[in-house]
Nucleic acid binder design. Structure first.
Lengths: 107, 107
DNA sequence: AACACATACCTCGTGTTACGATGTATTACG
DNA sequence: CGTAATACATCGTAACACGAGGTATGTGTT
């Protein structure tokens, strides 16, 4: 999938991945894989960014003698998803412009 | 509208704007305005990029004693739009993941 | 024991990109 | 004569996704 097309999507994908229950980096990548592929370097960059923006909080916990960083979505994070959903109407209208324009030419 | 969300859309918007008839920078901005806003610096950067990629061709013509650069879409440009439309299924599935996830939580 | 592999985290450099600021020139209007 | 609209362009900046590479521990295999 086109990288540029991903850019507005990845942040909210990560937020959606931790929406129902806290998760950690490695699991987020696996969970998102069927939906959208992202590399580790990308994910950890995004997690840092979302934390700095207050859209999620971090908690370090031990699991089977190994450290994991669990991420929990904040209210601001949930709002971010809602904003995204609200903006989607514009995206759809852009898509329609791009996909429908010119089709009446073929008639 | 979120800048990141625009990134995968602007190129194809510009291509769609010249799809039915040749156009020039200033007019493209005006035509796209109801659909998506973009600044002049952004547009001219995009036009250069699309030309370099062979997605459109340029022709300079005089109009009322003033020079205009008219842009015409190429076959590759049309293919670019088709690729975009094909990728849209993935985008929709991502949107569904983001928007539907968690809604069954409220029941 | 030695080795590969999965888990789990991280940093750095690079290329792409949208934008504001700014500049140049001409035409139109008052 | 000045202001706005038309029409093009460049430069620097900040955001971002990614590959390459690094560190460390557990698990499975031979």
């Amino acid at each position: 999938m086109d990288i540029q097309l991903k850019r507005g999507l990845l942040d909210v994908c990560v937020l959606a991945a931790i929406r129902n229950e806290d998760s950690y980096g490695y699991k987020i990548i696996k969970d998102l894989k069927p939906c959208v592929e992202l590399s580790e370097s990308t994910l950890y960059t995004i997690l840092k960014r979302l934390e700095a923006a207050g859209l999620l909080t971090v908690r370090t916990a031990e699991h089977d003698g190994r450290l994991r960083k669990y991420y929990r979505i904040t209210q601001a994070g949930i709002s971010r998803i809602e904003t995204f959903k609200a903006e989607w109407k514009e995206v759809i209208s852009i898509y329609k412009f791009v996909s429908e324009e010119g089709e009446n030419e073929q008639a």
